[in-house]
Structures are given as structure tokens and as C-alpha cells.
């Protein structure tokens, strides 16, 4: 059954892309709010909030990775498992990029944006299918995606220890 999942070495590069995208968003939002937080919160409290934000990003990252692994499990091996790095990376970029664009538009339009959410999702899925299809057929694109995923692994060495620290902080604060 484990054979239906991608090779162990193929998972970290895709996870690196996921974390890079989601943590980048979290960090931008956090630092956007930071100046106002410094007006009324102590530095320890700000670190606590930062910890919650990092832990939330960790869980969203794991959830998205889990989703990709589930797809890999369900689809024929040639569809995703055998080209997990390239197609996993392209799927991640499309899905997270679409969500980022949505929220960017949402901040301008507000709730009326929700009436477009099904269309938005449909377009996202279509774009993801196209990306999956072409990502392995255009060599330059495939090499680019694989190279990107490989280079982003370095962020895991920074983000995972930070997330572990944040998780510890959240657990301590939530339990005691």
C-alpha cells in the first residue's frame, strides 16, 4: 500500500514549496499588523501571537501536503506519484496562489466576492489541471519547478525549527 505514495525523497521538496507559500503569506500578514501590535502589546505577547500564526501555517501546510499525498494515493501512479515533485509543486503554486489572489480581491470587494467563489474554484481547478498536464511536458518548466522545489528546501531548515518552537509555545500557553 505504501507503494502508492511518492518516494520518501520526493516529499520534502514539495513540502518546502507548500511551506514557503503559506508561511510567506502568514509572515506578510503578521508584519503588516506588527506596527499596530507594538502600540499595545508587550514583546512576549507579540511572540505568542507569532507562534499561533506559525502553528496555524504549519497545520495548513501539513493539510495541503496530506491532500497531495491523498491524491497521489488515489490517482494512477503516472498521474502524480511518479512525477510528484514537478506536479506537486505546480499544484501547490496554483492552489496557494489562487487563494492568495482571492483574498487580495476579497480585501477590496468583501462579501460580494463570495458569489464568485464557485467560479473562482472552478477556474483554479482548471488551471491546476492545465499546470499538471503541461508541467511534465515542457522540459524547461519541469526543470524549473524541480529546481525551485529543490532550492526552497533550505527554508525548511529555518521554518521547521521555528514551527517546533512555536508549537511548544502554543502547547505551553494552551495547557497551563
Amino acid at each position: 500500500m505504501l507503494k502508492r505514495f511518492p518516494a520518501r525523497a520526493d516529499i520534502p521538496p514539495v513540502f518546502a514549496v507548500i511551506t514557503f507559500m503559506l508561511y510567506a503569506w502568514t509572515l506578510v500578514q503578521f508584519f503588516w499588523k506588527l506596527p499596530s501590535l507594538t502600540f499595545y502589546l508587550y514583546i512576549g505577547e507579540i511572540f505568542a501571537i507569532f507562534s499561533y500564526a506559525l502553528v496555524e501555517s504549519l497545520f495548513e501546510s501539513l493539510a495541503l501536503l496530506g491532500f497531495l499525498l491523498a491524491l497521489s494515493f488515489l490517482l494512477p501512479p503516472a498521474a502524480l506519484r511518479d512525477v510528484f515533485i514537478v506536479r506537486g509543486t505546480s499544484l501547490t503554486l496554483i492552489l496557494t496562489g489562487s487563494a492568495m489572489l482571492f483574498w487580495n480581491r476579497f480585501s477590496e470587494l468583501g462579501l460580494p466576492m463570495t458569489k464568485h467563489i464557485f467560479l473562482w474554484t472552478a477556474v483554479t481547478i482548471a488551471a491546476a489541471c492545465l499546470a499538471v498536464f503541461f508541467s511534465t511536458r515542457i522540459n524547461l518548466l519541469a526543470r524549473g519547478l524541480a529546481g525551485l522545489a529543490d532550492r526552497l528546501i533550505v527554508f525548511l531548515y529555518l521554518l521547521m525549527p521555528l514551527s517546533a518552537l512555536a508549537l511548544g509555545t502554543v502547547l505551553v500557553r494552551s495547557l497551563f
Binding site: Q29, F30, Y52, A53, E56, S57, E60, W103, N104, G110
Partner: peptide, 20 residues
């Protein structure tokens, strides 16, 4: 602290941290 981290008002067009 969790509230400062997570509670975003969708109705006031705030951008949430947890996008997915």
C-alpha cells in the same frame, strides 16, 4: 492571544492569516 492571531472579521474585508 489566539484572538489576536486568528480572529479576522470576514465582514469588514480583513485578510485572514489562515487563507486555505
Amino acid at each position: 492571544m489566539a484572538s489576536y492571531a486568528f480572529d479576522t472579521s470576514l465582514y469588514s474585508n480583513e485578510v485572514p492569516t489562515a487563507i486555505l
